[in-house]
Design a protein around this nucleic acid. Structure first.
Lengths: 189, 189
DNA sequence: CATCGGCGAGAACGGTCGTTCTCACTTCAC
DNA sequence: GTGAAGTGAGAACGACCGTTCTCGCCGATG
């Protein structure tokens, strides 16, 4: 079980380092050391650091959204409960050791101006998340603007939790989401 | 009028470069060139790049919050109008050319894990902003949780506007803030 | 006038980074 | 057994970065 396939081992090491310290602060040699491979092998799988960064972001996007979707689906209950459970999932994420905010926001700030692929990855990730939330909001029967509002709350909670190191931002955002949801549903004709 | 004092010229150049491209992507020589000074003079005023980065963040924090406060104060009107005008100010900021999100969030993602002073600057900036918003919320007569909720909305709007390049996030956040404010005031006994 | 301190311009230094190369060694085909 | 191809370990390379140093020049002081 120690012998995952090489690509995965490299990506695991890269993800931990890139997310934990920032992309530019991590050299390829650190990725090599953490993955327990030789530099040649690393470059065989990812011809450049940029390729590795893009793969890191792409894999993280898929995993992040899948984990959220699984959590919401397993929650069951009413559509409303499912929607609000998004914020519970965020709270658990915030409380994980080493949590340091959204990898895509961080990468965007660091490389977005220089590397268009990173900016595109961040945009894609945020759009997918907003779209997912929109689906949940629609199931509740609230208007689309509500989805936008809840997306902003979730986004803000991620940033606030990262900078203040306080996972409680998720509960705050959940409470605000509840209020917005109630207001939107009450305004229905 | 071209002859500002050297410290200001250096900080002006550093701010534009650091904010626009990320701190690590900008070398000291680029700061020297953009400020039109010699490297020796730059190091006379800021003994290391870290010092320059900290000064950049500190000055930007002061200016940012002062600009916001001035806008709100000039808005006048009811406390409620003043509070909501925060989001108008955000919208104008988002629409500025070269807007690339919150300098403190960006720096935090890039250097927060490595440079404690940067993490502290980001924390301080966000705490001051949250405190300012709390004051406006109190003047409206809404409970303190409402201030937390509006802070999350503003934070989320900044991130969303940066990544999607869409200043409209400010208007979305303002609409959500209005709803939250109404809900909070209606719940008053 | 002589001397001294500070200046601008840029070279130099030590270190690091992304990437490639060397080289001895193994493995396998024939 | 012999050649080819691939591997691991790490050195090497070229570029750049933060920082310091050199050096020729200028202006002020006595």
């Amino acid at each position: 079980m120690e012998q995952e396939d090489p690509r995965t081992r490299i990506l695991d090491a890269a993800e931990e380092l890139f997310y934990g310290q920032g992309v530019q602060a991590v050299g390829m040699d650190a990725v090599r050391a953490a993955s327990g491979m030789t530099l040649r092998r690393v470059y065989q799988h990812f011809p450049s650091k940029n390729d590795l960064v893009e793969a890191y972001l792409q894999r993280r996007d898929g995993r992040w959204r899948a984990s959220l979707a699984v959590h919401v689906a397993r929650t069951g209950g009413t559509p409303r409960e499912q929607l609000l459970s998004v914020f519970d999932w965020l709270g658990r994420w915030f409380a994980e050791p080493g949590f340091r905010g959204c990898a895509f926001v961080n990468s965007f700030g660091e490389l977005g101006a220089t590397t268009p692929a990173v900016a595109a990855a961040a945009r894609h990730h945020k759009e997918e998340f907003a779209g997912y939330l929109a689906g949940l909001v629609e199931a509740v029967g609230a208007p689309p603007e509500t989805a936008v509002h809840l997306t902003l709350l979730a986004e803000g909670a991620i940033t606030a939790a990262a900078i203040h190191g306080d996972p409680g931002a998720a509960a705050d955002a959940k409470e605000a989401a509840r209020l917005l949801l109630d207001a939107a549903l009450a305004a229905r004709t």
